[in-house]
Write a protein that binds this DNA or RNA. Structure first.
Length: 427
RNA sequence: GGAGGGCUCGCAUAGUGGUCUAGUGCGUUCGCUUGGAAAGCGAAUGUGCCGCAAGGCACCACAGGUUCGAAUCCUGUGCCCUCCGCCA
């Protein structure tokens, strides 16, 4: 959610953000009128309450009764206006950063850099689902019988590799020396404070999802009726609200979490997209980064997140490109968004494997997550969220990039120690 | 799932209808004192909204209700604790 004072003073910027992000039209005149009316009513209510307090002191029964009646009327109006005000406010998207390209859709995204060399093959590279079936690593067919489409059994060395990837990434994220190196290599002037590893809940209350601005589109979420809870679509959904309604002393920032959880997505509206293999599943595991920092550090914090993502991909030997997402393709709560797209030789294209979202205070305002500097008033923290490892898609990238002529898959060197072998070959 | 207890200003507590614009202790900050410190003494010490300010309003887990008046009474919800049952 935006700050209403900002909206009031920067109508043009807000209108442009709505237009460029293809957000739902919001009548700003109406919004501001509702805000002013609400303010007036508040003041009126304050006055009434003051009179009422005095009347009560004086045991003025008749006057009290009369005032109470008036208060009830005003309060009812105020409740209505509050609802209306909030319903309009949450429609407003976050303002894109100055360096965000304006564009209609993904065609407007800007490739910032390409890193790593695409492998060349003396044979026609296979797609990961061919490799997966041939090497008995994924079994979508049986999973479909048991659970339906877009589920899989990850088997054998691929299951082992999932844990190898997570362990590999976690060791980077909790190691201050490694993080210091990453930060210095990127020329960032930022704390190298390690991430706290977390295994977060995968169920979340609807009201909290709403405060994260992640409830919509609702049809994308799994919902349990008996308990009225949603299954998270990302660890972000329960990591982000972890400090809601808290005031964090400024010296404790940044607070960084690395959360590992399963993500659940209905993939509504993605019918017939990526139906083969394990690119787009209803259920997949992910190591997610989430941080809370001072406003003046949030750009660098995001740059740091991207640097970590790149360090991981480089270490795995995967060719990738960093993409700055344009207004038409970015999420509503985002101020700036980068995607890491990794080269997939089987499919002969770059596919999104990671994303990095700078939310500024858009989420923290509704979550009421604040920081306090000594002798200053509390203010809203800035939040960053990013993927460290999306296991499924990273496995796909490794399979397709590291396939060999004999149909086996070379295990990236950094993962070998966790798997006790160097190649995934046919049994 | 069952039975009981609890939730008050950073922490600990007092407060069972108006004297609560919430008291006290601890902590923190400032001042006095001192060669310096400790102790002692004094003062300050939350959040949000409106306002240039003075000031006002709201908040005692949350939401409703009763009352001229609610931290206090009633109802619902959440969370915590103890015991029982079940269980990875």
């Amino acid at each position: 959610m935006l700050d209403i004072k900002f909206v009031k003073e920067n109508r043009g910027i807000v209108e442009e953000a709505i237009k460029n992000k293809h957000s739902k039209e919001v009548n700003l005149d109406e919004l501001l009128a509702v805000y002013e009316e609400r303010k007036e009513l508040r003041n009126k209510l304050d006055e009434l309450n003051q009179k009422r307090n005095i009347a009560a002191q004086n045991r003025a029964v008749d006057e009290g009764v009369a005032l109470k009646k008036e208060v009830v009327t005003v309060e009812a109006k105020l409740v209505d206006l509050d609802k209306k005000f909030m319903s309009l406010m949450i429609l407003l998207p976050n303002i894109p950063s100055a360096d965000t390209p304006v564009g209609p859709d993904e065609s407007g995204n800007k490739v910032v850099r390409q890193v790593g060399e695409k492998p060349s093959f003396a044979f026609k590279p296979k797609e990961h689902w061919e490799l997966g079936v041939e090497l008995d690593l994924i079994d979508n067919e049986r999973a479909a019988n048991v659970s339906g489409p877009r589920f899989t059994y990850l088997k054998g060395d691929l299951a082992l590799m999932q844990f190898a990837l997570i362990q590999f990434a976690l060791e980077i994220l909790v190691n201050e020396d490694t993080l210091t190196k990453i930060k210095n290599d990127s020329g960032l002037n930022i704390s190298p404070k390690p991430f706290v590893p977390i295994i977060p809940p995968v169920f979340v209350k609807p009201a909290v999802m709403n405060r994260m601005a992640r409830l919509e589109p609702r049809e994308e979420r799994y919902h349990t009726e008996a308990d009225d809870l949603y299954l998270v679509g990302s660890a972000e959904h329960t990591l982000g609200p972890i400090h809601m309604d808290e005031v964090i002393p400024a010296e404790k920032l940044p607070i960084r979490y690395a959360g590992y959880s399963t993500a659940f997505r209905r993939e509504a509206g993605a019918a017939s997209k990526d139906t083969r293999g394990i690119i787009r599943m209803h259920q997949f595991d992910k190591l997610e980064l989430e941080s809370f920092c001072l406003p003046e550090h949030s750009y660098q914090e995001q740059d740091f997140f991207v640097a970590i993502q790149e360090y991981i991909m480089k270490s795995l030997g995967l060719p990738y490109q960093v993409v700055l997402i344009c207004t038409g393709d970015m999420g509503g709560p985002d101020h700036r968004q980068f995607d890491i797209e990794t080269w997939m030789p089987g499919q002969n294209k770059y596919r999104e494997t990671q994303t990095s979202d700078l939310m500024t205070s858009y989420q923290s305002r509704r979550l009421n997550t604040r920081f306090k500097k000594k002798d200053e008033k509390p203010d809203f923290v800035h939040m960053n969220d990013a993927t460290a490892i999306a296991v499924g898609r990273t496995l796909v990238a490794i399979m397709e990039n590291n396939q060999q002529a004999d149909g086996s898959i070379k295990i990236p060197e950094v993962l070998q120690k966790y798997m006790g072998k160097s190649v995934i070959a046919k049994q």
